[in-house]
Structures are given as C-alpha cells and as structure tokens.
Amino acid sequence: MPENVRFNTRFYKKKAIQKAILAYAHLAKFRVKDCKDYLEVKIENIDTQVKDIFVDEFNNYVLGATKKCC
C-alpha cells in the first residue's frame, strides 16, 4: 500500500526533499505532487526489509537536509 507524506513548505525545503528522494531511491518509488502549502510525497514499493521504519527515517532525512540547506 502506498504511503503519503505531506511536507509543509514552511518547514521543509523542496531541495531537501529531492535530496532525500535521491538518497532513498534504491529502497522505494517516489512521486512528488506540488500542492498549495504542501509537498505531497507518495511512496510506493518500499523494500520489505525496511518497511517499518522507512517513512520515519525518510522524514528525519528530509529534516536534516532542510537544516543543512538553510
């Protein structure tokens, strides 16, 4: 089942999300949709070995990348 994560553009930078997607591209399939105040990331085909922690780890990675972008 696909996972949806909505990143508020007030906190998360688009560049950081792209960086995170590049880093995690070998573990899942990503689709990014640009909404008004949010960037919606649809995650599919997550590697079964890391499925439990994947979304949370991805969120943390985006947060870290955002901090480095600033």
């Binding site: 508020n8 906190f11 949370d56 969120n59 943390n60 600033c70």
Partner: peptide, 22 residues
C-alpha cells in the same frame, strides 16, 4: 522562531523520529 525550532529538532533526529507541521 522557526530557525530555533529547526535547530532543536536537528539535535534530536538521532534519538527520535521528528515530523513538523503547523
């Protein structure tokens, strides 16, 4: 301030999973 929140969150990402929203 947003910068302070981001800094504090960054210091904790090794211990917990953090997600921000408003």
């Amino acid at each position: 301030p947003l910068e302070a929140i981001l800094n504090a969150c960054y210091l904790f990402i090794d211990r917990v999973y953090i997600f921000l929203d408003s």
